[in-house]
């Protein structure tokens, strides 16, 4: 059996460049008529030791590196979720068996002191009837972030379109303002408190989320728009008899679907996790999600924290999947489909 690496090296020594780096073209190189002086003096490239190693091990090395990175990033998530179901965690691994107690406490379902801090059910007294809505606070805080996304869709998508499609005065400025993460959440929060002191918490939070996360929506949608020939697509549709609004809804938006969906997911995830702004602006009413996380994290045992974080993971995954699914189906507003 032949060693493939030896065979390769030894097979055709004559076709290899000379080890001294001299020209493999014989004699006439430098003096040939019509060639510039010094032609042929550039030595052939000789791979160094490092490039020979990477050529052989490159694929394995990179695969290994990626695998290590993924494990490193995933491990905390796996450990946290595992811990959230553990009764005890004293050593290296969770112990004491499986329990849902941590989740119950984090969600405010357990009759403990933490209940009022959790995202439990809300009881309303309406016309003498007492109605209990389970997880109302949780749903409400998810809706706050979704409200921010909705504003971004209505405002951000047209801005991304205008900046990509048209040339107009102030275009550069609009683009810069739209994609700059204008101010940190904490500063925007203080500004909101000063300027709109009478605004209900929920409204202020939704507006603030949309302002803070707008750049992610604009950038994602803009890159979608930039990958198509907007003008020719639009003109094709119009020449075929579609009015401008119809063109926008049936042709332009569906073609930017990918960007819109990914922009919405990024905006929602970041808005749900936005702590600084929420912390400053929130005063009363149902709590934004990031504050729920914070309070569960700040003065609770690790297992309870793990449960709260796991809930956050679940919600992020669920909303992402929901937005994806909406994106897959929901883009045929009166189109040809």
């Amino acid at each position: 059996m032949t060693d493939p690496s030896r065979g390769e090296d030894g097979a055709q020594p004559s076709s290899r460049p000379r080890p001294d780096g001299g020209a493999t073209v014989s004699g006439d190189g430098a003096d040939a008529p019509g060639r510039p002086a010094g032609y042929g003096s550039v030595p052939d490239r000789r791979p160094g030791a490092l490039s020979r190693v990477t050529a052989r091990l490159g694929r394995t090395a990179i695969t290994g590196l990626i695998a290590a990175t993924v494990v490193f990033l995933i491990a905390p998530v796996v450990i946290t979720v595992a811990a959230s179901f553990a009764r005890e965690w004293t050593g290296l691994f969770p112990s004491g068996g499986f329990t849902l107690e941590n989740w119950k406490q984090a969600l405010g379902l357990a009759q403990t002191l933490g209940a009022q801090r959790g995202l439990g059910s809300v009881s309303l007294s309406l016309l003498g009837l007492s109605v209990t809505i389970p997880f109302a606070t949780l749903v409400f805080s998810m809706a706050l972030a979704l409200g921010g996304v909705a504003i971004n869709l209505v405002v951000g998508v047209p801005i991304a379109y205008a900046v990509t499609r048209y040339d107009f005065y102030g275009q550069g400025w609009l683009n810069t303002v739209a994609v700059l993460p204008v101010v940190p959440g904490i500063i925007l929060g203080i500004a909101f408190l000063r300027t709109y002191s009478h605004l209900p918490s929920a409204v202020a939070l939704v507006i603030g989320y949309s302002l803070l996360k707008a750049p992610y929506m604009v950038l994602a949608v803009q890159s979608s728009f930039e990958s198509m020939d907007l003008r020719q697509i639009e003109e094709s549709a119009r020449s075929l008899g579609a009015s401008w609004p119809r063109t926008f809804l049936t042709v332009i938006l569906p073609n930017a679907k990918r960007g819109i969906v990914s922009g919405a997911i990024v905006c929602w995830t970041l808005a749900a996790a936005e702590f600084n702004f929420s912390y400053i602006v929130y005063s009363r009413g149902p709590k934004p999600f990031s504050l729920f996380l914070f309070e569960n994290i700040s003065n609770n045992p690790f297992l309870r924290v793990a449960a709260a974080v796991s809930i956050y993971f679940c919600i992020v995954v669920a909303v992402t999947a929901l937005l994806q699914a909406t994106g897959q189906r929901g883009f045929s507003i009166g189109g040809a489909r």
Binding site: M228, D229, Q232, I233, E235, S236, A237, R238, S239, L240, G241, A242, S243, V251, P254, N255, K257, F331, G335, A336, R337
Partner: peptide
């Protein structure tokens, strides 16, 4: 859209959706 003209472009400009 009210002229009854057909357009064919270099970039084809097909509707990918």
């Amino acid at each position: 859209e009210r002229r009854s003209v057909g357009l064919v472009f270099q970039s084809y400009a097909l509707f990918d959706n």
